[in-house]
Every structure is written in C-alpha cells, then in structure tokens.
Design a protein around this nucleic acid. Structure first.
Lengths: 349, 349
DNA sequence: AGAAGAAATGAAAACGATAACAAAAAAATA
DNA sequence: TATTTTTTTGTTATCGTTTTCATTTCTTCT
C-alpha cells in the first residue's frame, strides 16, 4: 500500500503542510511535532510522490544525458561507461536522477528534441556530442531553453562544454616520436566529421611544423576509427613510396590495427616502426607490445560536466564556461627509445 | 515561453478536454476540430507536461535500469553499453524513458531502494544483477511492488529474468578442448560470489565428467575476473605439478592474462597450451593469437529483458517468465586443432 | 497582566494534465 | 416533425504535493 501526505498527517495529528515542511527539512517546525511526524512517516513507510512534487515545484530533479547514435563505440571503448560513472558520481551527490537518452536513429533523435525536452521532465541536459553535425541539436537545445553542457569541445560561442585537449595530446604524441629521433612520422587519421578527428590531425601538423619537419601527404592515411580501418591505412602506408619510421594513430583501435599490419609485413614494432595511439583504452595495454598512447581523462570529463550542469540548474554562475582538460602521454613499449634522448623519457607501466 | 492545454484550448476555441483527447489520439473527435486543435498545437509549439500527465494517470512512462556498483567492469567490457543499447532499442519503440541508476557505494544503493522505488517515478525496473548478494535487493523490489526483470539467471522462484547459458557455454568450451584431444584441461575461475562464476565452473566440471575425465583440484586456479588475476592464476598452474595442456578461463580478461603468463614462460599458445575465454569481448579478437571464446548474446539479453518488462507493465502475461539464451563458441586461433578431429571443427574469423 | 512580536500551524489555492460524468449537437428512426 | 440514438463537446473533480496567506500559540516586554 502506498501512502500520501494526507495519511501521514492524519496519523501524526498534523496538517499536510506541516508534514510537507518536515519532509523538506524546513526549520520552522517545533521539535516535538517533527518527531511525531517522522514517527508516522516511518510507521507507514511513506515516501513523497516525486511526480506530484515536480509538478508543483517545476523541478524534476532529473538530468538528461544524450548519447547520439554511434558515438559510444566509434571513439574509444570504455568511454561510455566511464563517462557515465563520472556523471552519476556527481548527480548522486546532489540527489539528481539520470535520464539516459540514446537514439538509435536519426528520426528518433529528432523526436527526442521536439518532445522530450519540452515535456518538463528534465531540468538540464548533458550532450555527449562529438560530430560537427551535432550543431543542429545544440542550437535546438538553446531555443528550448534548457541548461546544457556539452562533453567535447565545440566551435560555438557562449556554450558550456568540457572536453579534453585533443590537439595538445596529439602534439605530445608526435613530439615524443620526434624526440626519439624519428623524422618520418606518419599519421593514421580518424574521420573528419568528428571534432576530435580534426583536432588530433591539427596537433600532428603543428608538432611537425614546430620541429621543422615538412608535412607530407604521403605519410598520412585515412582511417575510420576502427581496427580494420587502421589496418588498411597502415597497409597503405607500408606500400607507399615513403614508409614512415613512426606512426601516430588517432585512436587506439586503429593503432592496434596498424600493429597487426606491421607484424604481417614481417616488421617489428618499435624496432622497425614505432607506434602511438590515442585514448588509452583497455586494449592499448593488452596488445603485444603494450601501446604507448595518450590518456584521455574520461571520468573527469563526466564529473566536471555534471558539476557544471548542477550549477547552471541552480542558477549559479559557471566560472570558466568552457574547460579543456589536459591529456597525458602514457609511455609503454611500442616506441622503444632512443638512447641519446633517454634522459627525457620515463618508462611507465 | 511554455504553453499548457489551456492556451491551446483558447486558441483553438475548444475545451481542455478536447485538446487532451486530440493529444492522446482519442478517436472521438470530429475531424474538423481535430485539425483546428493540431493547428493551434503547432502554432504554439505545445507539448504536454509529462509530469502532470504522470501524476494524473499514475504512469510515468519511465523504466529504471539498476546497475549495482562494480558489475560493469568485472564481467566483460562492452557488456554495459551493449546491454543498454539493447534495452533502449525496445524502450524507444514504446515511447518509454530510461532512468539509469548506478550506485557508487553500498549506502547509495540502499537509499535507492528505500526512496526512489517508492517515489512513483518509475513504472518498472530492470536489474542487472550478477551476484548472489543482490538477493536482498530483489526481495525489496518485490515488496514495493514494482514490475521487475533481472538480467542474469537468479536462483529464486517466481521471478522474471533473462540470462545467458553460462553452464552450457562453459561446457561447450571445455568439450571443444577435449575433442581436440586434450586430457589435462585446466580452469581459471572467476570469483564465486558471481552467479556466472559458479555456473561456468559447473559447466567445466560437467564436461569433464561427461568425457570420463576426473576432476582434479590441481588443475584449477582461482582468478578474480581481471587480467592480472588471470595472469597470476596461470602462473600457479604453470608452476604446479601437473601443467595442463589446455585451459578454459571464465572470462576473456583472465584468458588474456593467462596468455601473457604462458608467453613469458617461453611456451606457445595453442601449440603448447590451448586456451579458451568467455564472453567474446573486443580484446578476445585483439590478442595475439586471437582468442577462441564463448559469445554471450548481450544485446539480445537487453532487448528481451526490456520486452518482458514492457509486457509486465502493461499487465500482459509473460510467456516463459525465465529465459536462458544460448551462447555460441567462437573458434579462433588460440586452440589450434587436432587433425583427426578437424572435421568437427570449423575455423572462424 | 496585557500588548506586541515571534514562532508554529493550518486552510485553501495552485501546478497541468486526464477521467468521469453531463450536456449539447448531429444523425437516425419512427 | 418529434423522438430516440449516437456522436461530439464541455464541466467539474482529481492526482499529491508545495505555496501563500491567515490564524493560532507561545514568548517577551512594559
């Protein structure tokens, strides 16, 4: 049996208002009545109807997390659970609930935006976006309007987001290779409809420039974020006129594919061709040899985004509206090391 | 600006009730008035307040998915996103929303059960359970009461669940090894607080028995589902008095760890020691050599559970209340093959 | 002790939808 | 045309809270 304030009020010999005050920890209730009410609450196992409360207060205490179709796998594998864990850790702290919105198709996606966001079911939204195409949805969100935080940098003004520094991360990876003595550093790109794909490519180019190496189209092959794509791209590079001595792949999956291609060619990783990945997904360390890669602070992206959103919902100001978290180069065994430069390099598990 | 039925009614020159009827596709509205109302709806960009509707109808159109702390990683990696994808694909079809409940601690877990489930915020629950300990929560759920479907077999009567056939899967894996000619088949177990851990162990033992091989404690080492645990367990086996010629690990992560240990010992996978994993996670195919493993139909578990729950919510009968989905042995390269038995074995990518 | 002020409590309205019932309009029948 | 039946529409109550405002009770001070 489910009870209401009315039941509690009757049992405690108080009014509905008083019961409500007790439930909401309003201090203007005499200690004695409070205990009487709490006793009744306990006795009946009463828990307020959050729907009714939401209707009256116009606050649902629910946050929507939107995951556009396709994002969860393409980029990196434990991305999705990790980011959700980060988000929930913060939301739980604030007694907020999480609505997971995962569209399986473009049309579903559209419905979500037209219906759900206006249904007052949600106090704010975290949008895990990553493609330039997501712009249309972001603009719609703004019109609702609903507090909103993106996960991933996005080239739009006046928007809240938290992302990781893809450009700098890529830069560090490539610089690492150059510091090891490599002059012919190849790149296996992701697709360029992804923001991260473009940024990582940028970082690659900037690193070359900084070290006076000329950008060479022959050293770049296009992948599609998958292992198979990485494998194909590496084959291209291996069969090209200029075979690179080191390759930076825009994510770990492709790096793993590249490793396979290199091995099949009878070459040795790190000795013949060094390789660096991006994201530090689990298989980066599973592969033989363990992959040097760029670690993305996925969990922190989740927590930060959630914290930002909570502030927005509470009408507080969000200090820097846009946050780019630093990445970290994780050095394992896929690049070996140049003895001359060894002082600069710390081998890490 | 957000509008209500009242606004639409005024603009369309109709009553609130009529507007409500149109929104709910009630057929008893004259075509002419219907179009007038829809015109007004469009003009104002009206969308019903789902909170108010939920209060009145006592249906929130929200389904809770509970993921107890720790489950998402221990078992197998893409488990979590894959199962969620399966669930959402069905829920979206029925216009149901998904509340993701992820507790970060035991105390949070407890709060969830005492508060959220009674808050009428949810019409039903999918509980991704896997430990015997989860029993307490299941029992609480029953008391609420709230339609509920478990993902994972659970040793309780009169409960709805969908799981995969861990026992048969393990059986098949071990039988495969035996068919290849192996007589000394080892087992790396997971922890036994997990239902799947016990079932897979059972399957191992049954397969031995069926083929007249005696169970031998010396051939069994305890892991903890992690790669590191698998590595340690394999080391134990390798240093034991009876070194197995084949090993079945209760999940892929441990299998990968075992592979590492075997390689370090200077032995060759499949030639010296064959190995089979469980789950067919992504790294099963990433490892060198690609792992023979048992595929768990994760996505289908999600869809089926969601379909069952939808039926329960609608008061329909759920035909078989408990479903065990079959697994599939994926044969790759970690076991090689016995020429004599080859006819039985199909090599697969 | 009585008045003024503060603290605690309660009655009634409101949030925005739907449901039950009643009434009006249209169609069918006599 | 009058009457019955059917279709369509509208009125009012309701879901379970919180909020506003009024009232009561308790303190404090002269």
């Amino acid at each position: 049996m489910l009870f209401t304030v009315k039941d509690v009020a009757r049992l405690a010999g108080a009014s509905k208002t008083t019961v409500s005050r007790v439930m909401n920890k309003n201090p203007k209730v005499k200690f004695e009545t409070k205990t009487r009410v709490l006793q009744a609450v306990k006795e009946l196992g009463y828990s307020p109807n959050s729907i009714a409360r939401a209707l009256r207060t116009k606050k649902s205490d629910v946050v929507g997390v939107i995951i556009p179709r396709g994002v969860e796998y393409v980029f990196s594998d434990p991305f999705f659970p990790e980011i959700i864990k980060g988000i929930t850790s913060v939301l739980n702290l604030h007694n907020l609930n999480l609505h997971l919105i995962m569209s399986n198709s473009e049309s579903e996606q559209r419905e979500i935006y037209s219906g759900l966001l206006r249904s007052r079911r949600i106090d704010g939204v975290i949008l895990i976006c990553s493609r330039f195409d997501d712009k249309q949805y972001i603009l719609k969100l703004r019109k609702v309007p609903l507090p909103c935080v993106l996960i991933s940098r996005f080239p739009l003004e006046k928007i809240n987001y938290v992302g990781c520094d893809n450009k700098q991360g890529a830069y560090n990876a490539v610089e690492h290779l150059i510091n090891l003595g490599h002059r012919r550093v190849g790149f296996i790109s992701g697709s360029f409809d992804f923001i991260g794909g473009v940024d990582r490519f940028e970082g690659y180019k900037i690193a070359l420039k900084k070290h006076n190496l000329e950008y060479d189209n022959e050293l770049v092959a296009k992948g599609d974020w998958t292992r198979e794509g990485g494998y194909q791209a590496m084959c291209e590079l291996l069969n090209g006129v200029k075979v690179p001595t080191a390759v930076f792949a825009a994510n770990d999956q492709m790096a793993v594919g590249a490793v396979k291609a290199i091995k099949e060619k009878g070459l040795q990783i790190s000795k013949d061709i060094a390789i660096v990945g991006f994201s530090d997904t689990q298989f980066a360390s599973y592969v033989e040899p363990p992959l040097t890669t760029v670690r993305e602070p996925t969990y922190e992206e989740g927590t930060l985004a959630a914290e930002m959103l909570v502030k927005l919902i509470n009408g507080q100001e969000v200090k820097p509206p846009q946050v780019i978290l630093p990445t970290k180069l994780i050095i394992r065994e896929s690049c070996g090391y140049n003895v001359k430069k060894m002082a600069k390099v710390v081998i890490k598990q």
